[in-house]
Design a protein around this nucleic acid. Structure first.
Ligand SMILES: [Mn+2]
Ligand SMILES: [Mn+2]
Ligand SMILES: [Zn+2]
Ligand SMILES: [Zn+2]
Lengths: 156, 156
DNA sequence: TCTCTTATTGAAAATGATTCCCATTATCAA
DNA sequence: TTGATAATGGGAATCATTTTCAATAAGAGA
């Protein structure tokens, strides 16, 4: 089975097994939901989507899987100050990489990709320097700008 | 009374009144606690500190005041993925400005100031461009690096 | 393909941070 | 000093997330 096609451990099942985990129906379904959208989904959003296809999958499993995927570095976990976390699939390492403008009033979130090249360059240097200086293994980063969106600016 | 000394609305009471709020004992106490520390305090941490001096101040008031100060831009609110928010006084606009390395395992947080000049320069340009393009009023930003601290790296 | 180990799951209960409610109190402009 | 009302605090309510634990299913090895 190994080497049948493509490099070893390619694809999600391989990624999981490579880490000693098993590929299961709920996990598969959760990953698919995350891959099919560009939105920032909450655990409950994902639960409801999965539920349409596999009604037996529980919310607990969704939470567990999201934690696992976050720790594996396959998804991002965000706090947009709504009181619940939101998740997003990690896209290609450079392609589609973006950060967020968060409206502190209506909680709207805007993806932006401007400055990303410059930003990546800056972050790369920072990561290198900081990981050396603090002996810290950096896996991930977030940049978020908080403020008021166009709609919330006008309404006071 | 106005103009007695210093510019109008200097000091905390002035800042509050200028926004139509009142200066109260609980607010004063909460601000003092935040100003006296370099740590990242949770609402409960602050509550306990305040409680030493003013035992009658309630946790609800601490939460309300923290939200107010955050909205006023006087303190930062952080999510270090512990399940509770932590707060920090906004220091002078450039002095002491720093960002964070967050250990995703033990939740330890390291303040760093390296690259801050470069970072501020970068952020200034980004804010200018983004606020124009998205008609977004940017008030604040966060940069956080997530990973494993030196202690958590060795223990697997 | 069958077996066995154990990783994973789901339902329900627990947890715990934050918010809501509302009668009471305190601030401060006039 | 006074009055309008902003602010408070205690307890209850919310609600996202975690824990518990018995049942189930993945998948390595036979
Ligand atoms: Mn996004
Ligand atoms: Mn800090
Ligand atoms: Zn908005
Ligand atoms: Zn650590």
């Amino acid at each position: 089975m190994v080497g049948r096609r493509g490099p070893m451990s390619s694809g999600w099942p391989g990624k999981f097994r490579g880490c000693g985990y098993r590929m299961t129906v709920p996990r598969q379904a959760i990953i698919e939901v995350l891959q099919k959208t560009k939105k920032h989904l909450s655990a409950e959003d994902i639960y409801m989507e999965v539920h349409k296809i596999f009604p037996q999958v529980g919310l607990t499993t969704v939470y567990r899987t999201l934690e696992l995927l976050t720790d594996m570095g396959m998804i991002y976990k965000f706090d947009f100050r709504e009181g619940r976390a939101r998740y997003e699939m990690v896209e290609g390492l450079k392609k589609e990489h973006h950060h967020h403008l968060v409206c502190t009033k209506c909680k709207r979130v805007i993806n932006y990709t401007e400055f990303i090249d410059e930003e990546i360059d800056f972050l790369k240097r920072a990561e290198k320097e900081l990981s050396k200086k603090y002996n810290f293994e950096i896996n991930d980063h977030i940049i978020q700008f908080y403020g008021l969106c166009d709609k919330c600016r006008v309404s006071k």
